[in-house]
Amino acid sequence: MDRSFSTKLSLCMLFFSSYPLLAKTPQPPALVLASDYQQGLDLQDYWVCEKYDGVRAYWDGKQLFSRAGHVINLPSALSEQLPEVAVDGELWLGRGQFSDLVSLIKQQDVNLNKWQQVQFVVFDLPNYPGPYQQRYRHLQTLSSASEFMRVPVYRAYPGRPKLEQQLAKISAEGGEGLMLRDPKSMYLPTRSNALIKYKSYQDAEAKVIAYSDGKGKYRGMLGALVVQDQQGRQFKIGSGLSDQLRADPPPIGSLVEYRYNGLTEHGKPRFARFVRVHQTL
């Protein structure tokens, strides 16, 4: 056999033998992303609802995917309640139950009993034409026959003072904050003011690059995480760490989520506090 032909044949076989692996590489769905509220933005025409602390999920009409493009296995009794069209939403277990929800999803356990309390909060139809107010009405129709699906309840923008009262009430009850939606916006898979997060704090992610030793009662344990954010800023996060995390901190290189209240005069997050290790789903 011709050596060059043999080499080409071997390369071809190698390519096709690895093709299934390449095909399984997760492809993140193109989703609308929310922006943080900016002072002075006119909110007069926006709709307001609670911000759900769940896991973003995209139903393509046949399968459910995470924001990162991983398949989320559902009990058949739940997937059968979903429509044959693409739906953008969030799996939600309840206020303060994010970690339990992530654990359930990672188990890939389709035991219906374990999923009984999970709801699919659906808030958009990526492929449906028209402004959001039309897409929302169609969502209400689609979800009316499903116990698994629910749509958020919106209210008209009540004015800044009442919006602050509403935010304080939701926060006191353990909620994440509020979401503001432009009812005239089209579904554009990018970050814009069509969807706005309105919270009493900002949140972000940063990579753990080092540890700071603890002092006093934390001597011999972790004092703070030294992190670097996407802008290259380095700072410490010591607040919000449990004793368990101080004894067994997140690995160097891992991503953590944190909350903060604006920036200092040096441009670093003010009052940065640890929330959780970032879950890649």
Results as ranks from 00 to 15, higher is better:
S6A: 06
K8Y: 12
M13Y: 09
M13G: 01
F15K: 02
S17L: 12
P20R: 02
A23G: 03
A23M: 09
Q27D: 05
P28M: 03
L31F: 02
L33Q: 09
D36Q: 11
Y37V: 05
L41A: 08
D42H: 11
Y58M: 10
D60W: 04
D60P: 05
D60Q: 02
G61P: 01
G61M: 07
K62V: 13
L64C: 00
F65M: 07
G69L: 01
H70K: 12
L74K: 03
A77Q: 12
S79W: 00
Q81C: 04
P83I: 00
L91D: 05
W92L: 00
G94I: 02
L101R: 00
V102P: 00
V102W: 00
V102S: 03
Q108N: 12
D109Y: 00
V110R: 08
K114A: 04
W115V: 12
W115S: 08
Q116F: 09
Q116S: 15
V118L: 03
P126R: 03
Y128D: 15
P131G: 15
Y136A: 11
H138D: 08
H138P: 11
S144C: 13
S146W: 06
E147K: 15
F148D: 07
R150N: 08
V151R: 14
V153Y: 07
P158N: 06
R160W: 12
L163R: 03
E164L: 14
Q165Y: 04
A168R: 14
K169H: 05
E173S: 13
G175Q: 05
G175K: 05
L178Y: 02
D182S: 09
P183M: 04
Y187S: 07
L188N: 08
T190P: 10
A194N: 12
A194S: 12
A194E: 09
S200Q: 11
A204T: 01
E205T: 07
E205S: 06
I209M: 09
Y211K: 08
Y211L: 15
Y211V: 09
K215Q: 09
K217Q: 11
G220A: 11
M221K: 07
L222N: 11
A224N: 07
Q228E: 15
Q231R: 11
Q231E: 14
Q231M: 08
G232N: 05
G232F: 06
Q234P: 02
K236T: 14
G238Y: 02
G238H: 05
G240Y: 08
L241Y: 01
S242D: 03
A247T: 15
L255W: 15
L255E: 13
R259W: 00
L263Q: 03
L263I: 00
A272R: 00
R273F: 00
R276N: 07
R276Y: 04
H278N: 05
